[in-house]
Design a protein around this nucleic acid. Structure first.
Lengths: 104, 104
DNA sequence: CCAATATGCAGGCATTTACCTGCATGTCAA
DNA sequence: TTGACATGCAGGTAAATGCCTGCATATTGG
C-alpha cells in the first residue's frame, strides 16, 4: 500500500464524496457520478484518477462506459497501520496529558 | 470533528512522522521533535499547527517549552465514519466487481 | 542582570493542486 | 453510416501548500 497516495486521496472532500456515492451504489459510470458533483466532468475525472492511483477505486470498461468500483482493502490497511496503533494506546496517551496538566 | 482538517493533516508524510514520534514518546518539546525532521524548526511548526487545528495534537506550555501530546479521538472518529462503513460492505463490494468482470 | 535557549511571527518563493476550456477519440443505435 | 453519447487528453490559471530566511519575544540559569 502507498500510504501517502491513500491519505492524499482521502484528503479532499470531493473524493470522499465519490467514495460515499460508490458506497451507496457500486459500479456507477463516470456520468452518473458527475451528476452528483458540482464541477465539470474533466475535473471529476482527475479526482477519480487519484482514487485509482491510490487503489481505492477500480474501473472496468463496458463499451463506451466506464464503471467504478470501490476497493475497501487500502482503507483497511490504513486502519491497521494508523488507527489501531494509536487506539491501542488511547487511554495511556490521554493519561500522559492529564498528568502534565495536573503539573507532573 | 472536522473530517477535512483531519484527513488533510494526515495527508502529509512529515505530519504522520510527527504522530509516530509522539506515539513513541508522548509530551515531547518542539525542539525534540525537530531533531528527527529534516527541515527547519519553522517548517515543523507549521506542520504541527495543522495537527493542532485538526485536534490530533494538543500542546501545553511549560515555561519556555511547548509540550506536544497526541489526541487519539479524531483518529477513532475517522475510523468510525470512514473505515467501518466500507469495511462492513467489504465482501459485497468485491462481489459486485467480480460479477462485473465475469460479464454480469 | 544577561547570555543562551526555546519558541513565535512575517514575508517570499517554488511546487502542487483543483479547476477550467477546447478538442479528440471511441461506441452505440437508428 | 452517421449523429448522439460517453469518455480521454492537452494545456492554462488561480489558489493552496511546503519550505525557506530574517527577526522578535519570552524564559531560564549563572
Amino acid at each position: 500500500m502507498d500510504a501517502d497516495k491513500v491519505f492524499k486521496a482521502l484528503g479532499d472532500p470531493t473524493r470522499r464524496t465519490l467514495l460515499d456515492l460508490l458506497c451507496e451504489k457500486n459500479g456507477q459510470t463516470l456520468g452518473e457520478l458527475c451528476d452528483h458533483l458540482d464541477m465539470t466532468r474533466q475535473s471529476a475525472t482527475q479526482h477519480i484518477g487519484l482514487l485509482e492511483a491510490a487503489n481505492l477505486v477500480t474501473t472496468v470498461r463496458r463499451g463506451r462506459e466506464k464503471l467504478h468500483f470501490i476497493n475497501p482493502v487500502p482503507l483497511h490497511e490504513v486502519y491497521e497501520r494508523w488507527v489501531r496503533k494509536f487506539e491501542r494506546q488511547r487511554l495511556s496517551l490521554l493519561h500522559d496529558l492529564k498528568k502534565e496538566l495536573e503539573g507532573e
